[in-house]
Nucleic acid binder design. Structure first.
Length: 335
DNA sequence: GTCCATGATTACGC
DNA sequence: GCGTAATCATGGAC
């Protein structure tokens, strides 16, 4: 079968190669029949092979009725489906998008210099590509300039939607990270029993001057498996809490006095025997106050008050003691 | 769920 | 920068 001579019976009467048989048609009846033929050919074009379809397309493009039919189809398109989308155009800025923008801007993860320009460029590039495609297609199918405009609007809306989704995801990720950061900052884990013992041992054996030097802090941190800052925090808390409620800590002080005394006795008998605290050799207490114990609130003598020193002025003064505090010959600096 | 102990943070003074 | 004092926030015992 000739590619331009489809199954339509009317074409069988025109073996001259005129695809729709419109050449020479002079009356309205013939015109209507010609248009009918053209439409019939368009309808059946998908049934043809690729070669047949290409040939028919070319023939239709060259048809003298094509411009008229083309403009009519454009008009019909304008008036029907696409016109329904008019209401969706010119949308106001989405308030949620504005909020997301503001948040990302505040977090320093958005802004024109951080990808906003690239996104706009990508959108523009894609739009240009689609417009070129449509212009290309407009030679073979009715594509009006207005339709191109609408397509551009659709692309912009889609890009905007994707941008919103990405911004939302980024905001969520930022919130999660922020929350994790704050959690980590606030997370509190009790020190190990052994670490607390080491710290307490130092504290009570230096009760007249419980201000470890930097070296002592580093040594304590190493022994306890914590940071120097944590050692400083611990001593800060301990001093203030001890001072606030000496009576409450008396028992604890006596306990550590006993331990220290026991450790000292054992080391005298066997210098290589670890002390009873289980904290291993604790060289830092070598110059300790040995042992102060705690002045009982009722005036009684503590059971293990081994030193002649007082409990140190640090408990009475609000200012940190200097290296010349009472019993400074036992100060931490000697460590 | 409540209470207490405790590590961390913050504001302030020196 | 260090220490104090107050406070926050959490862990753990009950």
């Amino acid at each position: 079968m000739h590619p331009l001579n489809p199954v339509h019976p009317s074409s069988q009467h025109r073996p001259d190669g005129d695809p729709a048989g419109l050449e020479g048609a002079e009356n309205g009846h013939d015109n209507r029949r010609d248009i009918g033929d053209i439409l019939q050919q368009i309808m059946t074009i998908t049934d043809q092979s690729l070669d047949e379809a290409q040939a028919k397309k070319h023939a239709l493009n060259c048809h003298r009725m094509k411009p008229a039919l083309f403009s009519v189809l454009c008009e019909i398109k304008e008036k029907t489906g696409l016109s329904m989308r008019n209401a969706q155009e010119e949308e106001p800025p989405d308030p949620q998008l504005v909020r997301l923008d503001n948040m990302l801007l505040a977090e320093g993860v958005a802004g024109p210099e951080k990808g906003g320009g690239a996104a706009a460029a990508a959108c523009s590039e894609f739009t240009t590509h689609v417009m070129n495609l449509l212009r290309e297609q407009s030679r073979t199918r009715p594509v009006s300039p207005r339709e191109i405009e609408r397509m551009v609007a659709i692309i912009h809306r889609k890009f905007s939607s994707i941008q919103t989704q990405l911004k939302q995801s980024t905001c969520e990720a930022v919130m999660i990270l922020r929350s994790r950061f704050l959690d980590a900052r606030r997370k509190r884990r009790n020190f190990s029993k052994q670490a607390t013992e080491v710290l307490n041992e130092y504290f009570y054996s230096h009760l007249s001057n419980p201000y470890p030097s930097e070296e002592a802090k580093e040594e304590l941190a190493k022994q306890c498996g914590i940071t120097v800052s944590q050692v400083s925090n611990w001593f800060g808390n301990k001093r203030i809490r001890y001072k606030k409620n000496i009576g409450k800590f008396q028992e604890e002080a006596n306990l550590y006095a006993m331990k220290t005394a026991l450790g000292a006795t054992q080391s005298e008998e066997s210098p290589h025997t670890p002390n009873s605290t289980g904290s291993g050799s604790f060289s830092l207490s070598g110059s300790a106050d040995c042992f102060l114990g705690v002045p009982p609130m009722n005036g009684e003598q503590p059971p293990y008050h081994m030193g002649a020193q007082t409990n140190g002025n640090w408990q009475e003064q609000n200012t940190p003691p200097s290296a010349t505090s009472p019993g400074s010959d036992h100060s931490d600096n000697s460590d």
